[in-house]
Design a protein around this nucleic acid. Structure first.
Length: 220
DNA sequence: ACATGGATTCGCT
DNA sequence: GCGAATCCATGTT
């Protein structure tokens, strides 16, 4: 469901993201994030996500209402929501749910499986990132590695040629990863979100999802 | 106009 | 486990 054909691959379409944000967040690990750049096509397997909900989720930017930077969250699904944090990083989210039901999925970690040198070059632009074999472990590093910055805010990833997501069954991972299995099954761990201890009644919601035993998870 | 603090990351203790 | 780096959205004066 929720897919269209693009060049033989199966791109996630708006219907995929229009579902409940928690369902989408659980479904995204194992899918492939694609970033077409001048230097090449960066491909990453999504490892970890978090769901952010409506005005009742005290950790969600939507809690402030339909205004300011989070206005996008109230609009149609499939748009990218990029915002800066700590003056240092920019975090990438995908708007989910029907119009009027604000929510978004935060992309927290990926395994870069193609054009790793391009991703490394992107990371090198920040003096706050240490470059090692984990290129996109954590939402700040993920955005930087994939070259996603504020100019991508509002981009429709169901249309864009520069940024989109392919279904987890659409790529033959034997060509892409070392030992990690795109087409094989995996267990998803559900746990609490990171960095939101200020959000009293919401901080214990099990809205963080990651692939069990995967080395590219940002934090256990 | 001013003060506050964060959906982070790294390095040092 | 804690603090620094560094900017802007948000809330208060």
């Amino acid at each position: 469901m929720g897919t269209i054909k693009t060049d033989g691959d199966t791109r996630l379409a708006r219907e995929f993201f229009e579902r409940d944000v928690v369902t989408v967040a659980r479904d995204l690990p194992g899918c492939f994030l694609i970033r077409q750049t001048e230097k090449g096509k960066i491909v990453g397997k999504i490892i970890e996500t978090e769901a952010y909900g409506d005005t009742t989720d005290l950790a969600s930017h939507a809690r402030f209402g339909e205004k300011g930077r989070s206005k996008l969250m109230f609009g149609p699904a499939g748009m990218l929501y990029v915002y800066s944090i700590y003056g240092i990083f920019e975090l990438s989210n995908i708007i989910c749910g029907k119009v009027g039901h604000p929510s978004a999925v935060l992309l927290r970690a990926a395994e870069v499986v193609q054009e790793t040198e391009v991703a490394k070059a992107n990371l090198s632009r920040s003096k706050f990132v240490k470059i090692n074999d984990k290129l996109a472990t954590g939402p700040g590093k993920l955005s930087l590695a994939f070259g996603i910055a504020r100019e991508f805010n509002g981009v429709n990833i169901t249309n864009s040629e520069l940024l989109y997501i392919l279904d987890k069954r659409s790529l033959d991972s034997s060509k892409l990863t070392r030992g990690d299995k795109g087409r094989e099954s995996f267990d998803i761990i559900e746990t609490t979100r990171i960095g939101i201890n200020y959000a009293k009644e919401s901080k214990d919601l099990p809205w963080r999802f990651y692939i069990k035993d995967n080395p590219y998870v940002s934090k256990k």
